[in-house]
Design a binder for these strands. Structure first.
Lengths: 212, 212
DNA sequence: CGAAAAATGGACCTGCAAGTCCAGTCTGAG
DNA sequence: CTCAGACTGGACTTGCAGGTCCATTTTTCG
């Protein structure tokens, strides 16, 4: 379907995706119409349906993929080399800065619960993004283990999962309330907990009540 | 506007809110139409607009309030008396069970990012819910402090904020991916971190890089 | 009992957003 | 050059969801 694409064609297609992403962030998925996107990108309906034959759903999916790719890129290079406490704090600052300036327009917030629910395609994109994100965190924690800054007994995957969930929640709350305090708290708490880990190792739950 | 309301009227109004909540959970805010709600509640359009003169927005807001009230109630009585480790683990289990059985239909997920963004009314509901939720957690942590199970030096509000954010994120991820592993991780990690707190008190960030 | 007000049913209107269509222009490979 | 196919413009169709209206029934209350 997308075999022959002129340079001009690719440019137009890209322009549509970029413009659509802007409009979606600003107005939300529900409120954004194709006409809004057309006006923003100075294209016509025939062009939009030429490049996205299945219409709005297909376009939304393309935008979702585009935004998902951005999310991790924006955290680089810090996310890629979390091998010192300094790196962790720099990553934290980058993340907070990014989401604070973004305010209440969230690329994920739109896709996360809007498209992501029903269509399997969007769900796959979100799942894959989370997987990669968590993997980066886990790699960072393992690097700290190797360097002897974090005890080897730490459950890396669970820690990374908890941190990732915290970030998602912090961002969600930022989107809903406009305050970034929770995102701050969760990042500080997460890193602090990492530093303190091992002080009382293996004590995750009382004997009678397993951790499940 | 809502001064005179017969018993019958209140019943109908309540039926509409309940049915609307069901439909919204099942189909999502975007996909749900008034006709869906009317069919579900066996009411007519005139009734809906009789009880919610401003139309869909007003109804959505009422449903949002209804759902928000549910969220905390469903965690009782455990959330209200987090004064022992046992209580904390029971609360954790309740929370997980609730959201697991709920699967990917989330009352908040709908409202959280859907209505909550634009309209100030919905935002207020979400903010208030989060505030109360966090307050319960903070009260629980303080109770543990008073009982001597958690060091008094702990920053209660920050800890509660981080835990709340983690829960929100865990639920979000559950909604998006269908897996509850992150919610598990964040709760276990949170409670564990609480138990381990004080082992290395006050060490929240290196001197050169403040916690902001 | 009897009027006033509330509750209900359902047909109707309206606007708008997604999607269609075709005619016309541009591009590039041979 | 030329022609096939990619690209573009914009009018048109269609369906449907939100909202309106009024006639009718039911309830309330003096």
């Amino acid at each position: 379907m997308r075999g022959p694409l002129t340079a001009k064609g690719q440019a137009t297609r890209g322009r549509i995706i970029h413009g659509a992403a802007e409009v979606l962030r600003e107005k939300g998925v529900a409120a954004a119409t194709l006409d809004d996107i057309l006006a923003r990108t100075r294209t016509s309906k025939s062009q939009l349906f030429h490049y996205f034959p299945s219409g709005k759903d297909e376009l939304l999916l393309a935008v979702a993929q585009f935004e998902a790719d951005q999310v991790l890129d924006d955290q680089q290079p810090y996310l890629g080399c979390l091998d010192s406490w300094d790196a962790w704090y720099r990553w934290r600052d980058t993340l907070i800065e990014r989401y604070e300036e973004q305010g209440d327009q969230c690329p994920l917030g739109s896709l996360f619960l809007q498209i992501g629910r029903n269509t399997p395609g969007a769900r796959a994109i979100v799942t894959e993004l989370l997987r990669q994100w968590q993997e980066h965190l886990a790699t960072g924690i393992r690097a700290m283990q190797d360097a002897g800054h974090v005890p080897a007994s730490l459950d890396v995957d669970r820690t990374a999962a908890a941190l990732l969930a915290g970030i998602q929640g912090g961002v969600s709350i930022l989107l809903s309330t406009g305050h970034s305090a929770h995102l701050h708290a969760v990042l500080d708490e997460g890193i602090t907990s990492l530093r303190n880990a091992g002080s009382a190792p293996g004590l995750s739950a009382p004997a009678g009540i397993p951790t499940r």
